[in-house]
Simulated scan of single mutants.
Amino acid sequence: MRQIADWNDQQFDYRDSGTGPVILLIHGTQSDYREVYHVERLIEAGYRVIVPSRPGYGKTPLQLAASPTELATFYRGWMASRQITRYTVYGISAGGPTAIALAGNNPAVRSLVLACAMTHQISIPYQTWLIQPALQRPLQLIQWVLWNYVKDKLVKFPEEASVRMVEMTSLLRRDDIRSQLNGTDQELLYQVGLQNGPGRGVLFDLTQHIDRQILQTVTCPVLIVHSKSDRAVPFEHALYARRAIAHAQFLESKSPGHLIWIGPSARRDERMIERFISLNH
């Protein structure tokens, strides 16, 4: 259920569900407070999961923060204002830099999970062109057309559309991806396709950067989970964080692409994350 926060002269939307130890989940690109990855299982496992929409997604204005560090400072103050003094930070994909900045030098953070997460600036083709302010409206229109196309195919051809969705963020061949997906994966990807969509937050994601020195300020327990088959956020991001945070634990996912919550090791990865959070909260 969407909730609207009005704090520090800013309004933004978020979800706050479940009871128990608190997890602040920082979602990835083209998502929002409705993030579906692992959320329901964490709630069932006895956690309270808070998912704010990042700048440019949901009803959260892009102007809420200009950088991951600034956004982390905002979230830190917001959580303190709610008298939440102990929580785990769970950073997904493009939410990684904000999650890292939030965990750095923050005694309230009991542990940090980085799931297929960016740990430094991303590099993609035509990046300089894609972040031009004048092109944001046309790019949003293109995103809208593409997501509606994906949703249509998911309804009509769910199995094949699921394979194509994974293929966009995978280094594997299509047939290899197809052999690794099951009915549960297809159902999750169907939910993702119907929930995700265009947002101005892509501009925030493409321009965000986190200094290595900030990673080195993270002293809480850290778990990094990443797949070598990830095309969207290359495996090197996981290795970079592992080198910068000497005490970090590492789990290599067998996911066929960017999303660790699908594929042959999905439930194992989720259980390991749940166990890690439980031991360190």
Rank of each mutant, 00 (worst) to 15 (best):
T60R: 00
E187N: 13
L62I: 15
S265P: 09
D205H: 08
D6M: 06
L141R: 11
A241T: 01
T73V: 01
I210C: 05
Q11K: 15
V113D: 02
T19Q: 15
Y126G: 12
V225Y: 05
A246S: 13
R86E: 15
G104A: 15
V49W: 12
A241D: 07
G199H: 01
K254Q: 07
A45Q: 11
D205S: 07
L215Q: 03
W129H: 12
A101K: 01
Q83P: 08
D16G: 05
I260P: 04
R174T: 15
E44F: 10
F204A: 14
P55F: 10
L154F: 15
S255H: 01
A108T: 06
R76L: 01
R137F: 10
S253T: 06
H281S: 12
G91P: 04
R34G: 00
K228A: 05
G20N: 08
Q195I: 07
H120I: 08
E159F: 02
L203W: 12
M79F: 09
V218E: 06
G56H: 14
A134M: 13
P138M: 09
E159Q: 09
V155G: 10
D230C: 00
S162V: 03
P158N: 05
Q63M: 06
V109W: 00
Q208H: 01
R48P: 02
A134C: 14
N196Y: 09
Q121I: 09
T69Y: 11
I210Q: 09
I177P: 14
G46C: 03
G95Q: 01
N280E: 10
A45E: 11
Q191I: 00
V166C: 09
I4M: 15
R76E: 03
N182W: 08
P221A: 13
Q63L: 02
V89L: 06
G197L: 04
C220A: 09
N280R: 14
T69H: 03
I50H: 06
V113R: 01
I224F: 12
R86S: 07
R76H: 08
Q186A: 03
Q208P: 04
W7E: 04
I23H: 05
L251C: 10
H120Q: 07
T169Y: 15
F276Y: 02
S253N: 04
Q10P: 00
E252G: 13
V150D: 03
Q127V: 04
E70W: 05
R173C: 03
S170G: 06
G28A: 12
F204S: 13
